[in-house]
Write a protein that binds this DNA or RNA. Structure first.
Length: 455
RNA sequence: GUGGUCUUAGCUCAGUUGGCAGAGCAUCGGAUUGUGGUUCCGAGUGUCGUGGGUUCGAGCCCCACAUUCCACCCCA
């Protein structure tokens, strides 16, 4: 009995058009990464399970795909798993290869990752991430370059975005100031939902998560300030400095943010609140200090980033941050890094929704040979060889089928030129070159054709 | 992991109270044995997601599973 073919939940096939479009995204991102001196690496799809476990919090462990060795009893704990992101394998890589690397090490990595999540739109079990990280330097130039990369990538792709930026040290400071230093995670998870569920719901969630009424009250200035977006970033930071006066770590966070904004100012990426349209027109990027931005991953310690498309509702399309000690768990302490990850699959969905893919992506073949018989076919093959040697992508229709059929193929593939080969043309050592867009055709010799198609 | 939703031709989808399985597009053939994208004529295709159940009879009702999408949770 023939079984109906299918693929696992949350995975996808990519057809010819999709791959042309996906490669457009990957190529754009890759070329920007290279422009900033990042170098590409790859790591295996699977890691030892111990490398992955405990790196992504409780929730993350549940979402890990585990690999059952063949012949292994189902009751045994699996010893390998599919990678969940590219950052942890990168940390492993850095520790393992530290003697071969010179720091700061700037690498990028474009590979699929797997999560046993429940799929929905823009959310898959297998998806690609495009990571850039610089590791082995505390300098906030790292943060700056990542912001510049974000601006450049999305400008090239034509997507208007806002970059939300926050700092884990500020969040820790806030937790300290309101007298709940051990509740930072609970606070961030709750206030992350402010936009979505509103002030009241956030406050009640904070109480459910064990915050005292005093603590919730003390938090209100932060939440209210986030609600009415009228301040400039500088005003926001000045207020935070006062609010966090008693928290050393909080003030450190404010200082970092000020430095980052000084740097973005210096390179012409002015930071403003998103409601001021002025910045957008100049750089295409709005940078917003968003105190509600939490980001799930536990390992961030400084700046955290998230990028959202302004004209599409699909959630975050890029995210990342600074991690001071990611390599510590693999035995290499005190190495600081900062990185971000572009979500290629979501960028694809945004470009589709906004109709921003370039038209010309689909056709790669420049010319098709159309023939009337076996000897014409062989004649076309010798021409094809010569044209390919000259760097021109050509195809020969593999059988002397009906004109209509062969021309229809050229049409469906959007091949711009067709060369018709019949007895008359062969007798003159020429072919009939037809421009499919205009319908014009001319009898032409090989060397002329090379010039014509190479122009 | 919790609750809900979708699945019918290659694609997008109709399908009435349970009574012979439908359209458009695409494909293929012809009008045109050397000229495509536009025209005209003709043709084909279905284990109705999978497996059970109820019924004289199920695309339609019931159960299980898979899948899609959605809300939680979390996240690219």
């Amino acid at each position: 009995m023939a079984q109906k073919p299918s693929i696992p939940k949350g995975t996808r096939d990519f057809g010819q058009l999709e791959m042309a479009r996906r490669n457009y995204i990957f190529d754009t991102i890759r070329s920007v990464f290279k422009l900033y001196g990042f170098q590409q690496i790859e790591t295996p799809a699977m890691e030892n399970i111990g490398t992955l476990m405990g790196k992504y919090g409780e929730e993350g462990d549940k979402l890990l795909f585990r690999i059952q060795n063949s012949g292994e009893k189902a009751s045994l704990a699996p010893e390998k798993g599919l990678r969940y992101d590219l950052t942890v394998p990168f940390a492993r890589y850095v520790v393992q290869h530290r003697e071969e690397l010179s720091f700061p090490f700037k690498r990028f990595q474009i590979q699929p990752v797997w999560r046993a999540d429940r799929p929905q739109k823009g959310r898959y079990r297998e998806f690609y991430q495009c990571d850039v990280d610089v590791i082995g330097s505390d300098s906030l130039i790292g943060e700056l370059e990542l912001i510049q990369i974000v601006e450049e990538v999305y400008r090239r792709l034509g997507i208007r975005v806002s970059l939300h930026i926050n700092n884990r040290k500020i969040l820790a400071g806030i937790a300290e100031v309101i007298g709940a230093p051990d509740k930072m995670m609970d606070i961030t998870v709750a206030i992350d939902k402010l936009d979505k569920i509103g002030l009241e719901a956030v406050n009640s969630e904070l109480r459910e998560r064990g915050l005292s009424d005093d603590a919730v009250n003390a938090l209100q200035p932060i939440l209210k300030g986030q609600g009415d977006k009228v301040q400039s970033v500088r005003e926001q930071l000045a207020e935070l400095r006062t609010y966090l006066a008693s928290s050393e770590i909080g003030l450190k966070g404010v200082e970092e943010m000020e430095e980052i904004f000084n740097l973005t100012d210096a390179v012409g990426l002015t930071a403003e609140r998103s409601d001021s349209g002025a910045v957008r027109q100049r750089s295409g990027l709005t940078i917003e200090l968003d105190l509600c931005l939490a980001r799930g991953l536990n390992y961030y310690t400084g700046a955290i980033f998230e990028v959202k498309a302004l004209d599409a509702q699909i959630g975050s399309i890029t995210g990342g941050g600074r991690y001071d000690n990611l390599t510590g768990i693999f035995g290499l302490p005190n190495v600081s890094g900062v990185g971000i990850s572009f979500g290629a699959d979501r960028i694809y969905d945004v470009l589709t929704e906004l109709n921003l893919f370039p038209e010309a992506l689909q056709s790669s073949t420049e010319m098709l040979f159309v023939t009337f018989g076996q000897s014409e076919l062989l004649y076309a093959l010798t021409w094809a060889k010569a044209l390919r040697k000259a760097g021109i992508a050509v195809e020969v229709y593999p059988e002397p089928a009906k004109m209509k059929k062969q021309m229809g193929y050229a049409d469906a593939r959007r091949i711009p030129y067709v060369a018709i080969v019949g007895g008359d043309e062969m007798a003159q050592s020429k072919v009939m070159l037809k421009n499919m867009a205009t319908g014009e055709q001319q009898l032409i010799a090989l060397d002329e054709m090379v010039k014509c198609l190479n122009k």
